[in-house]
Amino acid sequence: MADERFTGRWKFMQAHPVLPFLILFILVFFLSFASGRYPVDPVTLVKVLVSRIADIPQTWPDQAETVIFRIRLPRVLIGALIGCGLSLSGLVYQGIFQNPMVSPDVLGSTSGSAFGSAVALLLGLGYTSIFSISFLFGLLSVGLVVFISHRVRGNQVLTLVLTGMMISFLFNSMLSYVKLVSDTDDVLPQITYYLIGSLNSTRTSDLIACAFFIIIPAVVIYLIRWPLNVITTGDEEASSLGINTKVIRLTAILCATLMTSASTAAAGMIGWVGLIVPHLVRMLIGCDYRFSIPATALLGSAFLMFTDMLSRILTTSEIPIGILTSFIGSPFFLYLIIREGRKT
């Protein structure tokens, strides 16, 4: 009897593989509001959110509204968007490079964005300019990688990865130079803090930009879900199956770059999310992009909302989220190496 119930549940899970990720996302979303310095319980949260679209009597203090709309909601949403963007980028890059160990910065977008923001901080530019310059440098670095690698004959995948590494080194060395010439009392700490990765200084304008540069590419990625499945078999096979590999790869790279650059421009370098979330999803529900795209988007969002919540509640002074994701990501990566070793 228990077995039958288990089999029934298992069949249900197989038919609806994304559902558990959606439930987790909703739970973490409410938990993010219920924790922290000004906790808001789920019922109040729902009432306040509904009050914006329907006329219901106010049973909550004014302060709750301020906390939700001015402080917590933008931050939770931007955390969800960045988590979704970074995780999806990782998932996409891993597929098109046929390598499950690839992370979103493989083509240098993170290094480019980091350099861009450091230059903007050095020049003392305003917040919007920092985001824009960082975003543009992220795109520029990947543009350079694609441009150079298309002029090289031979294995396109290998050339892209190697060129990506070189461009990353180039931007990292330029970043080091910017740090070297920065004012050690003022600009250098700003750059250092920015590069650690944090949602603390994100603003509503970031939310709008991130929504635009993450949601649209995410939709495009979902639309090409089947060609992405086929391209993981390798160029030769995918092409023989009727896929225009160049077009699909360029579309995927463009979308992943937009998402990574927007995320890095808004919150600095948040590592590991793009590596571990797609891995976890594949371990749980398999590789099929038809399901792994929505599942990765939801789990990535939930993971970053949860990590951000920890960063707010663990200590009185907030821990930058980049430190926490690395703290969780490194042991997980070691676990993966051990697991892969056992398999072989």
């Binding site: 046929q98 390798g234 896929i243 099929d288």
Partner: peptide, 19 residues
């Protein structure tokens, strides 16, 4: 065939209908 990403047999054969 590449084994970095493993699909079910049905999905692998479905890839033949991509064209």
């Amino acid at each position: 065939s590449s084994q970095s990403f493993s699909y079910t047999v049905l999905n692998a054969v479905l890839m033949g209908t991509t064209n």
